[in-house]
Each structure stands twice: as C-alpha cells, then as structure tokens.
C-alpha cells in the first residue's frame, strides 16, 4: 500500500499505513510523551499521557492509527497543560516518596514530571492506604507507587505467558491483584520474567538491587525522558501558571 502523509504540529511527515500516530511521530524524531505504552506490547491507551488532537479531536496517540491527511497537534500549550494535569494527579493519588524510592532517577513518572517542569503537584494529596507485598523471595511489590498502567499485567500475559497480574475494582478503587491468591509468593512469577522489568515506576522491584547506580548516572539524571527520540528542549522551572 502507498505511503500516508500527515502533519504533526505543522510539520509534514510520511509513514506506512498501520502505524500509530505515536510510532509515526517517533520515526521522524518527534517525541510524544507516554507512560503506559511499552514497545512490544499491544497498544493499550490507559494513561492518556500521549493525548494529541487529531483534526481537533483528542485521541491517544499510542492507539490511534495514522490516516491520510490528518492534522495532529502534539506540543501545544493546551496539550502540555492536560498532560501535566494527568501526571500531577498520578502523584497525589498514590504515595510517592521520591527521596527514598529505589526507582528515583530511573522512574518514568518522575522523569515525565521533570520534563514537564512540574515542581510540585497542585492537587490535594489523597494519601491512600496501600500495601507492600514482600512475600516473594526475589521481587517486591509496593502498591503505594502503582499507577495502574498494566504494563506488568500485559507483559506477563502476552510475553511471559503467565497472567500473574490482574485488576479488581473501578475508578479510585481499582487495584492491581496477583493471581491466583493475594500474595506474590503464591503466584507463578519468576525473577527472570519480563514482567519484572516492565514497571515504569518503583512498584515492582527486584530485591537486593536498590540504589546500585550512583546519583548523577541514573537514567534521567542528565537528560530528559524522550531526548533519545528528539533533540532536548531547554527546560525551565514551572512558574505555577496554567493556561
């Protein structure tokens, strides 16, 4: 089939049919922020961090396929404000104590907040009560930091072939569960499972590996998330104004 042409923020790009907007953008060095998307997994569309406007309508760039002639808005003031809001809500709806978190510096949620210049979430903190499951000999789950992106569940199901993780409840009551029982030690999870590496935050951690990388050499210490895809933008601290 012939190539497809579309524009992203006024820039015309060509791509193959069947790609998602996020993939097409990436091919051309345009970074669309994302959180629940993980290459190798089927598009999921859970977090909405990748929201773009397609001919004026909001769509998730990680699930929306490209189409001939569409006009995509990505890096606009409005979309940046929406995305910031999502990230800020994720911070207040869990319990994120970055200063003592094993994942700090390598965490995609934190890295997105840095990239967006979020100096503090503006929403009231909810301080939910959540558990830590340290029952497994090699892997730890801290539900306080889980953002319900389902990357672990999808990886376990589609790549490891195990379905170790599932979800119960809806809305604010939604929660990650372990199959078949409640504890990780009773599940089929092995430390070598790909699912262990799939978590973007510090909710699933390998034991005995914490704080191994010195500050300054962690993933997002020097360059913002996404800068592997595009040229890093000059980032400045948030001044608290929102359009």
């Amino acid at each position: 089939m012939s190539e497809i042409t579309l524009t992203i923020d006024g820039r015309e790009i060509t791509t193959q049919p069947g790609r998602t907007i996020l993939e097409a953008a990436e091919e051309h060095g345009i970074y669309i922020p994302r959180l629940c998307h993980l290459p190798g997994l089927k598009p999921f569309g859970g977090c909405r961090v990748c929201t773009v406007l397609v001919n004026g309508r909001s769509e998730a760039a990680c699930t929306q396929p490209v189409a001939q002639g569409i006009v995509v808005e990505n890096d606009t003031e409005q979309l940046r404000a929406w995305r910031r809001n999502i990230i800020e809500m994720l911070f207040v709806e869990g319990n994120h104590f970055c200063p003592s978190c094993e994942k700090s510096g390598d965490c995609e949620l934190q890295a997105l907040a840095y990239r967006m210049g979020i100096s503090a979430p503006r929403h009231p903190f909810l301080w939910p009560r959540r558990e830590v499951d340290a029952s497994h000999p090699d892997v730890l789950i801290d539900h306080n930091r889980c953002i319900l992106c389902a990357r672990c569940a999808r990886t376990s199901r589609d790549i490891d072939g195990k379905e170790v993780f599932g979800f119960v409840g809806r809305g604010p009551a939604r929660k990650l569960t372990i199959n078949p029982g409640a504890r990780l030690v009773d599940s089929a999870l092995d430390v070598t499972d790909q699912a262990v590496n799939a978590c973007p935050v510090g909710a699933i951690l390998r034991k005995r590996g914490a704080y191994a990388t010195p500050v300054g050499r962690r993933h997002y210490d020097r360059a913002p998330i996404g800068s592997g895809i595009e040229t890093p933008a000059e980032l400045t601290i948030d001044r608290g104004d929102q359009p």
Binding site: C98, Y114, P232, L235, T236
Partner: peptide, 10 residues
C-alpha cells in the same frame, strides 16, 4: 530559569 539538571525530587 533552572536547567533540567537542577530540578530533582531526590
């Protein structure tokens, strides 16, 4: 104006 490297939560 703080450069990226100066915005940290830890």
């Amino acid at each position: 104006e703080l450069p990226y490297q100066l915005i940290k939560y830890d």
